[in-house]
């Protein structure tokens, strides 16, 4: 089975659970030897140089101009429109993914039909395909040369399609392993105790899947908010209409306005992190109740 994403993006609950000797009562006890301590030092230094310091520089640059400059950039009409469009389309795509992703996962686990293996591979394509190629791919069917004469290039529908394409695997690959673990016998038991099909679905199946759906939704939203490559060819990047935040940041960078670019970048960094944290909290709450 092609579960490229199962551990690629969802390491599973084990990673968290086993990370400390006492689980939630984790105490910072060090079992490092001399060699492993040195390795940790080198790894953390490399990670800081490559990731942490550059990202801190973005936030520092955004804050360096002071609150007034920060606010000025954010309330620029073109920037506001870009942020609103990105968040709106990302939310819409996430809702679509929650529904269709769960359906696809269900079909892959509980249904049998010829071509299922092909479908497994096709679902991972958006994850491995270069984003610029994804844009070109979508233009083939939904652009000026469309064989079904449905040209949506340079419209907001194109933004939606690009987001939907690149985020397709997230909910599917989050839900699929959980659904595989969920024995059909559990549903049968609920049914034999007198639950209707709808009750078995809403009381047994969906609560068990909810944490996985939430995790997939969070990744899907975060990915859509930060998407760039797949939009370049298909959305036209029209100011106030189809321009997303990533494109807005790039426009600032290319215009030499790093401070403004850093402000918008900080905002989408914070939004992506907030959504991930919020859904993580939600997921824990649901898991506890179940």
């Amino acid at each position: 089975m092609t579960q490229l994403l199962e551990t690629a993006v969802f390491p599973g609950p084990d990673r968290e659970k086993r990370s400390g000797p006492g689980g939630v009562f984790y105490r910072p006890v060090s079992t490092l030897t001399k060699g492993s301590g040195l390795a940790l030092g080198i790894a953390v230094t490399w990670f800081s140089i490559l990731v942490l310091i550059p990202l801190s520089a973005v936030v520092a640059t955004a804050l360096a101009g002071g609150w007034a400059a920060f606010w000025d950039t954010l309330t620029n009409a073109q920037t506001l429109a870009a942020i609103a469009l990105t968040l709106g389309e990302a939310a819409l795509v996430t809702v679509v993914n929650v529904v269709i992703g769960t359906v696809i996962a269900w079909v892959l686990v509980r249904d049998k039909f010829p071509g299922k293996r092909l479908m497994e591979i096709v679902i991972d394509v958006p994850f491995a395909l270069p984003t610029i190629v994804a844009g070109l791919v979508l233009l083939g069917l939904y652009g000026p040369r469309s064989p079904i004469s449905w040209d949506v290039a340079n419209t907001r529908t194109a933004v939606f399609l690009a987001f939907a394409f690149v985020t397709l695997p997230f909910v599917v690959r989050a839900v699929q392993p959980v659904l595989e673990e969920l024995e059909p016998e559990v549903e049968q038991a609920a049914r034999s105790l007198g639950a209707s099909g709808r009750q078995a679905l809403t009381r047994v199946v969906l609560p068990a899947l909810a944490p996985a759906i939430a995790a997939g939704a969070a990744l899907s939203f975060a990915r859509a908010v930060s998407e760039y490559g797949s939009l370049v060819l298909i959305s036209g990047n029209l100011a106030l209409r189809t321009e997303v935040t990533s494109v807005r940041i790039l426009t600032y960078v290319e215009g030499g306005q790093s401070a403004q670019a850093a402000v918008v970048a900080t905002v989408i960094l914070v939004v992506a992190l907030l959504v991930i944290v919020a859904l993580d909290v939600l997921q824990r709450r649901v898991a506890r109740r179940g």
């Binding site: 550059p54 975060a222 998407e227 760039y228 940041i249 989408i268 992506a272």
Partner: peptide
Amino acid sequence: SVSPIVVGLSIVLV
């Protein structure tokens, strides 16, 4: 979870 454009910007800045 970081946008590729933000990754690029962060490298440009440092």
